[in-house]
């Protein structure tokens, strides 16, 4: 199981953020919100100075490229918890939880 984060921030901002938080997983920059639009997650004008950002969302994708689990929160203060994701991974048989 690979973790892939996406935000509208440019790579240098994400690099700094990952360094500060100790994130070692892949972190991608969608500065024009193209992929965010493709996944219908655009939250218009919700960023600083009214810029567009993504609403929080998590997708589990299997090795065939199919979506197996989706978490679209109804509050940006509530995100998928690690134990929730691990449970879904286990139940779907996507990978041993220890590989996360």
């Amino acid at each position: 199981m690979r973790l892939v984060g996406i935000s509208v921030d440019p790579p240098e901002i994400n690099r700094e953020h990952c360094r500060r938080e100790g994130y070692t997983f892949t972190f991608l920059s969608d500065t024009n919100s193209e992929v965010i639009r493709l996944y219908d997650l655009l939250h218009e004008g919700a960023g600083q100075e009214g810029r567009d950002i993504s609403r929080p969302a998590e997708f589990l994708i299997d090795s065939a490229g199919a979506v197996r689990w989706v978490n679209l929160t109804n509050s940006f203060a509530v995100r998928a918890r690690p134990d929730q994701v691990l449970k879904a991974v286990d139940e779907l048989g996507l990978a041993p939880a220890s590989r996360m």
Partner: peptide, 10 residues
């Protein structure tokens, strides 16, 4: 498999 996480960022 991949866990894709969209963040609000900034």
């Amino acid at each position: 498999g991949v866990l894709l996480i969209f963040y609000r960022g900034y």
